[in-house]
Each structure stands twice: as structure tokens, then as C-alpha cells.
Measured scan of single mutants.
Amino acid sequence: LTVQLGNLEWHFDNPEQALKMAEELAKRYQLKVEIDNGTLKFK
């Protein structure tokens, strides 16, 4: 699973870790998370 923020990307083997990080980033920057083809992206 990949977490993508702008041109930064983090790759996780563990989806739970990816979701946890995505939630933290979304909270911190007040963004919405969307999943696009196995990639978590922020809007």
C-alpha cells in the first residue's frame, strides 16, 4: 500500500501502518483521504 502526499510517497507492506499514517496526516493537515488503485491520496 502506498501513501502519497503531493510528490512524496511512502510504501508500506502493512496496510494498517499505511492507514494509521494516512489518518495522522489527514488530521494534521485537515485533508480528505481517497484511495486510488491501492494508493492513499490526499485532497
Rank of each mutant, 00 (worst) to 15 (best):
L1S: 05
L1K: 04
L1M: 13
L1I: 12
L1W: 14
L1Y: 13
L1G: 03
L1R: 06
L1Q: 04
L1E: 02
T2E: 03
T2M: 07
T2R: 10
T2A: 06
T2L: 07
T2S: 08
T2Y: 05
T2V: 11
V3T: 01
V3C: 04
V3Q: 02
V3G: 02
V3A: 03
V3W: 01
V3K: 01
V3I: 11
Q4E: 05
Q4A: 07
Q4R: 11
L5F: 14
L5V: 07
L5T: 02
L5R: 01
L5A: 02
L5P: 01
L5W: 15
L5N: 02
G6E: 04
G6M: 05
G6Y: 05
G6Q: 03
G6W: 08
G6I: 04
G6H: 07
G6K: 04
G6V: 03
N7H: 12
N7P: 09
N7M: 11
N7G: 12
N7W: 12
N7K: 14
N7D: 10
N7L: 11
N7R: 14
N7S: 11
L8S: 08
L8F: 13
L8V: 10
L8N: 08
L8C: 15
L8K: 14
L8Y: 14
L8P: 00
L8W: 15
L8I: 11
E9C: 15
E9R: 15
E9M: 14
E9G: 04
E9F: 14
W10T: 01
W10C: 12
W10I: 09
W10Y: 06
H11Y: 12
H11S: 05
H11D: 03
F12E: 01
F12N: 00
F12R: 00
F12Q: 00
F12K: 00
F12W: 05
D13R: 07
D13A: 10
D13V: 09
D13G: 08
D13C: 10
D13M: 09
D13Q: 11
D13N: 12
N14R: 08
N14W: 08
N14G: 04
N14L: 09
N14Q: 07
N14F: 09
N14E: 09
N14S: 10
P15S: 10
P15L: 13
P15I: 13
P15M: 13
E16D: 12
E16S: 10
E16Q: 12
E16P: 03
Q17C: 09
Q17P: 05
Q17H: 13
Q17F: 11
Q17M: 12
Q17T: 11
A18N: 00
A18G: 07
A18Q: 01
A18V: 05
L19Q: 05
L19T: 06
L19H: 09
L19D: 00
K20C: 07
K20Q: 10
K20R: 13
K20T: 09
K20M: 08
K20L: 09
K20V: 08
K20P: 00
M21N: 02
M21Q: 04
M21S: 03
M21E: 03
M21L: 14
M21K: 08
M21G: 01
M21R: 04
A22R: 01
A22L: 08
A22P: 00
A22Q: 01
A22F: 08
E23P: 00
E23Q: 13
E23H: 12
E23F: 14
E23R: 13
E23D: 09
E24Y: 15
E24C: 15
E24G: 11
E24P: 01
E24T: 13
E24M: 15
L25R: 00
L25G: 00
L25F: 11
L25P: 00
L25W: 08
L25C: 10
A26L: 07
A26S: 08
A26M: 08
A26R: 05
K27Q: 09
K27P: 02
K27L: 08
K27M: 08
K27Y: 07
K27E: 09
K27C: 13
K27F: 08
R28C: 14
R28D: 04
R28S: 03
R28T: 05
R28G: 01
R28P: 00
R28V: 05
R28A: 05
Y29A: 03
Y29M: 06
Y29P: 01
Y29W: 09
Y29R: 02
Y29Q: 02
Q30T: 04
Q30W: 09
Q30A: 10
L31C: 10
L31D: 01
L31S: 02
L31F: 07
L31M: 09
L31E: 01
K32N: 08
K32Q: 13
K32A: 11
K32L: 14
K32T: 14
V33S: 02
V33Q: 02
V33A: 04
V33W: 15
V33I: 15
V33F: 15
V33T: 03
V33K: 00
V33G: 01
E34F: 15
E34C: 15
E34G: 03
E34Q: 09
E34M: 14
E34K: 05
E34D: 08
I35H: 08
I35Y: 13
I35V: 10
I35Q: 07
D36N: 10
D36E: 14
D36T: 11
D36R: 10
D36F: 11
D36V: 15
N37R: 06
N37G: 14
N37F: 04
G38R: 07
G38W: 03
G38K: 07
G38M: 06
G38P: 01
G38T: 05
G38Y: 04
G38F: 06
T39C: 13
T39L: 10
T39S: 07
T39H: 08
T39F: 14
L40A: 02
L40P: 04
L40Q: 01
L40W: 03
L40R: 01
L40F: 06
L40G: 01
K41D: 03
K41P: 00
K41F: 06
K41Y: 09
K41V: 11
F42T: 03
F42L: 15
F42A: 03
F42S: 02
F42Y: 03
F42E: 02
F42P: 03
K43T: 14
K43D: 06
K43F: 14
K43E: 09
K43M: 12
K43S: 13
K43Y: 15
